[in-house]
Design a protein around this nucleic acid. Sequence first.
DNA 1: GTGAAAGCGCTAACAG
DNA 2: CTGTTAGCGCTTTCAC
Lengths: 382, 382
Amino acid sequence: MRLQSYARAYPSPRESLFVSSAPTVYDVAARSGVSIATVSRVYRNPDSVRAETRERVLTAARALGYVPSGNARGLASRSTGILGLCFPDYSDPDTEATEAEDEDAAMLYSDQIIRGMERAARRHGYALLIAASLKGGPESLVAKVAGRVDGFAALARTVPTEDLEVISRRQPVVMLAGPREGTDHLDHLDHIEVANFDGQKELTRHLIEDHGLRRLAYIGSAEESPDVEARFRGYLEACRDGRLNVGPEPDLRVRMMRQADGARAVDALCAPDRERPEALVFANDQMAVGALHALEKRGLRVPEDMAVTGFDGIPLSRLVRPALTTVHQPMLRMGEEAVELLVKRLSGARDTEPVSLMLPVTVVRRDSCGCGKGEVAHTDIP
Amino acid sequence: MRLQSYARAYPSPRESLFVSSAPTVYDVAARSGVSIATVSRVYRNPDSVRAETRERVLTAARALGYVPSGNARGLASRSTGILGLCFPDYSDPDTEATEAEDEDAAMLYSDQIIRGMERAARRHGYALLIAASLKGGPESLVAKVAGRVDGFAALARTVPTEDLEVISRRQPVVMLAGPREGTDHLDHLDHIEVANFDGQKELTRHLIEDHGLRRLAYIGSAEESPDVEARFRGYLEACRDGRLNVGPEPDLRVRMMRQADGARAVDALCAPDRERPEALVFANDQMAVGALHALEKRGLRVPEDMAVTGFDGIPLSRLVRPALTTVHQPMLRMGEEAVELLVKRLSGARDTEPVSLMLPVTVVRRDSCGCGKGEVAHTDIP
DNA sequence: GTGAAAGCGCTAACAG
DNA sequence: CTGTTAGCGCTTTCAC
């Protein structure tokens, strides 16, 4: 019944740019006079085939332009040698590279994770499949990735939690950055987060104690985000420790946490009818950068008239003027740790207890909080 | 004969962290009382199934924790929705991040391409599979990627040219950065390169005409690299135009073009027994950065005692002191163009003539060539 | 060492 | 709108 294959005519390489159907093990087997099993062996375990036979097969394969189908392989062997990463579409039109030189300034959060994962995956012999969720169905995203990899990492809120729960019953999954919620479901997932609370708390303490600021405003997210909430709680605690008068809610919640939202925050919080804060504490760098621009337009000086801080430590934070005081997250390391966790699960430790890591952050004091011109100080937290 | 599947017992979610065998269409079909074809339709084309039936299937799938197998899908449908990228292991131990803040300084060439491809792939609904060639068999790399994607890009010299030739008969391949050689084979490949020749020529002209330097030294690569050769030819032409006395070979060829090699180049070219050059023209940024360090150790000032230039425009080039004069390559754009080319091929234009793009570069004049402190000038080439 | 045969999980006609 | 029936290309026992 595979005779059709055996009888298939092999068009010369030049017949068309792309040949209608790619050669298979059957073609190679027929041409080299062995069975398909042997062809398979030549690729999976060369030493189990006599040298002469092996050469015959290889020669035929070369002549035919044979490339093993990863899909068929994965299907038959139930493993792919690929790790995956799902992340949300963070792209910010305002941050997109416009001038050539700014390409690297637009590096995001997720790009660092990709770099970290790629590096670690490479060390372990895995390739990396990356997929950003677009506005389309989120269902498709996870399914697409999950169905093609041996294990994967997902940035929090990329994938419906219940989907993750289901998938994690089948393969190793590590959740990135969103603290495990509920503690109830999601019990199969390994989990990595950063010290959002401690970082934001230390940064806020710095503003209050070291710079003597007392009227702070916090700009958070309207979307539910455990990370942002943790940061806000850190901010609150520092405020209370400093005996500042703060409510239980951020002074402002914006929708997307992009540059435009940061600019809008300035409009809202520096309205003429209200007392101007002494410091704008943003839940991320992108907004803070947007605010810097907006403030400049209004003729307000940073940090003299108003201090501004961010969170994340994206490359852009160091390039803007004044350079942004922020809390640096070790995203590269997070990517690496994610791979380590996945690899560990894949190589045996499948039924051990879920792991939960908390990575330390670094408070980076630059100009925008009032720390001396050009001087930079780091404090690792915790 | 699939009865085993139908009869399979479904362990409760808690029975084990990972269930032995994942549910399939057969399980979902059995549980929801439809055929496997219908299950398949629910995922591929939901509207072709009556709403009520669809819900039944979805419910069963959810209960079972069903996730479609990408491998099986790819195998049956002959397409994966994935694009690939193969790149060499560029990592440089000296550039690796040590301090948190330097994570982004370590961004390489290939990272920008990844970013560009990911972004463009996302726009077209593709995911991206990335794999760096490690010292292991190169055979495995291409095969791994090629066998799992609908089309892919390969950085020059990542993959044996003959392999590419073979594979490109089967699926779209675009070659990055290495000029098409021979013109003879490789005729199926689309190809993208940057203006290496013109960029290096303009930079060299700047050194000669604008700064009046006449004793230049070029540091190239021992490995064969069309890109580096093109740069060198640009350098040569500028030198001849300036009536400088230059031989047909670089003053030095180093092995890896890493920071350590740049430092070694300084040792070799600034030896006491020979006349010191006025400018060190490096074939890439990494070496130039290494040279900057070595020069500083020797107590030589840049640019006063010696001008230094690089090529690539990596983020690090702007962060070092003095900031490096270099030629910026639009790697992000190269990644994007690569995806556009692949997508075009995949959506019909399979048999049209191979495309060859030459992307413009930008000469970035910073401090290390003697251009005024802090001032930066750009010139786009061509 | 090599071959035969049975799937892996899904899609894709083609009937009904 | 739904079911039947073939494979997709490879790995994998189990014999020989």
